[in-house]
Simulated assay, not measured.
Amino acid sequence: MTTTETDVFTAEWQAWHRDHEQKRAAPHGFLAITGLHWLSDVPVRFPDAPGVWFTGAEGGVIVALDEGAELVVDGETVRGRHEFGIIPERGGVNAVWNDAVIEVAKRGGHDIVRPRHPDNPLRVAHTGTPTFAPDPKWVVPGRYEPFAHPEPTTVGAAVAGLEHVYDAPGRIHFAVDGQELSLTAFPGHAPESLLVLFTDATSGVTTYAANRALQLPPPGADGTIALDFNRATNLPCAYTDLATCPLPPAENRLPVAIEAGEQIPRERR
């Protein structure tokens, strides 16, 4: 790259990371979570959410609000007893309560309530995430090979005893310093995009020990794909114990040092 190209590359990375940090530290982002509450058929109160919460006989999440308390769900104000219905796996509903948001979700087959309060000290004190300096050498060409059929892949979670299951669509092959490597890919957020979860030789040293994530664009028609490890990010569990983040599959533990992307958060140092 020329000096000008490197400057453009760095500026684009800086803009991307600034936007990523803003989303992370949003008023109701993961840094605002104050509790991870697991529901059962036994009604229970939580100190950071209104009312009494439980999973009903039909499997749906129910809250019984106290007199005078209210939530806003999908733009509608609800009072008294409200049934959220059955929440799909990895799905969720956000209910507004004053200046807080009460996340109602399902993770690993369990209904959970995760209140998000903007004044949570973890969010208020966050000053940004350390990173490696962006370097074009960590934009690595790869080749995507889809499986004949998506393969259900079970991985562990940041919460002991919890498991996540993803339908892996294929694997990505690439090389670092002449060493041939590959990563099992999961579906990404956007249609046809991919997500890889991985650890490497820096994990637990300069980067978070449990996992890092890399969102990837849809592969080309010929399977070509670029892995920009400068954009490897921490998952929420790197900052808070109130997250249920998935761990990488065993085959995604890379034996090389990927000295790119986000490092161990200051909150964990």
Rank of each mutant, 00 (worst) to 15 (best):
A69P: 03
V256S: 09
E70W: 04
G156D: 07
V73T: 14
A157Y: 01
T6M: 12
H17G: 03
V63Q: 03
P236Q: 03
P187F: 04
T129R: 02
H189D: 15
G75Y: 07
P88C: 06
V42Q: 06
A250G: 06
P50C: 06
G161K: 12
A190S: 15
V155I: 01
E5N: 08
Y239T: 00
T55I: 00
V113C: 01
E151A: 09
A160R: 13
D200N: 15
P141I: 02
P219D: 04
G91A: 13
V72P: 09
F198K: 10
R90K: 12
A26V: 01
Q215R: 15
A243Y: 06
F54H: 13
W38I: 06
E251G: 09
P255K: 12
E12D: 13
A49M: 10
T202P: 14
Q215C: 15
E145T: 15
E70I: 01
R253I: 04
G220V: 07
L195K: 14
P146L: 06
M1S: 14
L242Q: 02
A64C: 11
H126A: 04
P255G: 08
V256R: 13
A160P: 10
P169G: 04
P265Q: 14
T184I: 09
G156L: 01
A190F: 13
P236A: 11
S193D: 10
T199V: 10
E103M: 09
A190M: 14
V155N: 02
G80M: 08
A148N: 12
L195T: 13
R143S: 02
L31Q: 01
P150Q: 09
G51S: 00
F84H: 09
T10F: 14
E5S: 08
P246F: 00
